[in-house]
Simulated scan of single mutants.
Amino acid sequence: MDNGNEHNNIPVWAFERIEIVKPDPDWKEKGIREREELHNVLSAFNVKQVEHIGSTAISNLPAKPIIDLMASVPSLELIREIAETLALHHWHYVPPKLDKKPWRRFFVKVKNDKRVAHLQLMQKGEERWEKLLAFRDKLRTDAHLANEYAVMKSQLAQEFNDDRERYTEAKTEFVNKVLFS
């Protein structure tokens, strides 16, 4: 797979700085379009559910301008074929060795060397599926929680703006508080 401008086989989008921007009313429509496209592309692999998750799925929440999605697959056994199919639609596969999350398969959609969407493929029945939906739905219905999350994300984006993994890890305590309170 050709990833465009690469240095040492590492695509430039792999090192994008974390940038939190003001809420964009177009995110909802972009999420719908990405969901529909993914559903059409992945239906050949018996994918029945694609969800828009993450901060761009929550009205009025500042976020990285990247549409986060997840799809449920019956099995991860066909990942090579799925990755080849998604590559035709600008999705880049990040293998588990690099992603370091063996419970999912991760893809990044890139346009003009910038991330525009993320996709997590999870095997049907994966417990994190319901947790991600629950977190999204709690923030959608609780403006105070959503605001608290927005403030924290902005602070973390400044602190870890060159380290996506540490940024994500630093949000875990808040996510768990929302899910288990």
Rank of each mutant, 00 (worst) to 15 (best):
F107T: 00
L69F: 03
D99N: 14
H92N: 15
N147K: 14
N112W: 04
P95V: 12
V116R: 01
S43E: 15
E81L: 11
K64C: 13
M122Q: 04
R136H: 10
I82K: 02
N46C: 10
D142I: 04
K100W: 05
A87Q: 12
L121R: 01
N40F: 12
K124A: 14
E126G: 00
Y93S: 01
G125P: 04
K64T: 13
N46K: 15
H144S: 11
Q120C: 04
E126D: 15
A83Q: 04
L121W: 05
A134N: 10
E127Y: 08
R105P: 01
T141D: 11
A71D: 06
Q120W: 01
W129Y: 14
Q49G: 00
L121F: 05
V94D: 05
A146M: 14
N40D: 14
E127Q: 13
A117Y: 07
P62F: 05
K48T: 15
Q49R: 12
P65T: 12
K48C: 07
Q120T: 03
M70C: 11
E148K: 12
A146V: 08
I66Y: 07
D113V: 02
E84Y: 09
V41N: 00
A143T: 15
L61E: 04
L86P: 06
P62W: 06
F135L: 14
K101H: 14
E130K: 08
L38S: 00
S75P: 05
E127H: 07
I53N: 02
V73R: 01
E37N: 13
R115L: 09
L76T: 11
K124M: 07
E126V: 02
I67G: 04
A146Y: 05
N112C: 07
R80N: 15
I82G: 01
Q120A: 03
F106L: 08
H39V: 00
D137G: 06
K97H: 08
Y93N: 02
D68S: 10
L69P: 02
K109F: 00
A71G: 10
L86D: 03
V47S: 09
F106Q: 06
